[in-house]
Design a protein around this nucleic acid. Structure first.
Length: 136
DNA sequence: GCCAACGTTGGC
DNA sequence: GCCAACGTTGGC
């Protein structure tokens, strides 16, 4: 099972929106690298929900429930279906991630504009651990 | 509000 | 095919 990180501006679509909806089609991605990542997703994969811009923090964990399919509104692009699993005990901020040497190679850091990025297993576990401990 | 990073477009 | 110009994203 692979792990991912998916960004959304909370003013556009937030974790609270996802919890309210119960599931959503993750569409609107218009970057080729991100599209490749969407295509690589499999049902059962898990992804961090990251609030970009105003918040800059990982806020929740979601599950991919359907593999990539063409977006009916933009057939050259794809969408996946996701549902919320749980909100993190606390947000893990970008600043904390940047300050953590074990996370220095996260795609989130290396290519900040990429809106759909893979997360390595060790990074996934580390971020979850950070969420379960008080911020330093 | 500014700017760096990155992608895309179009002139040559 | 190169590269300057431009647009967008997203951090600061």
């Amino acid at each position: 099972m692979a792990h991912w990180l998916m960004k959304s501006e909370p003013e556009s679509y937030s974790w609270a929106d996802l919890e309210r909806d119960g599931a959503t089609e993750w569409d609107g991605v218009r970057n080729n690298a991100a599209r490749l990542h969407l295509r690589a997703m499999q049902p059962g994969d898990e992804a961090f929900f990251y609030h970009s811009m105003s918040d800059k923090a990982v806020v929740g964990v979601m599950r991919v429930t359907r593999a990539a399919e063409p977006d009916p509104k933009a057939p050259d692009w794809v969408r996946v279906r996701v549902e919320p699993i749980r909100k993190l005990a606390r947000p893990v901020t970008l600043a904390e991630i940047k300050a953590e040497p074990a996370l220095a190679k996260m795609e989130l850091i290396r290519q900040s504009r990429l809106s759909v990025a893979p997360v390595r297993d060790a990074e996934w576990v580390k971020v979850l651990k950070m969420a379960d401990h008080p911020r330093k």
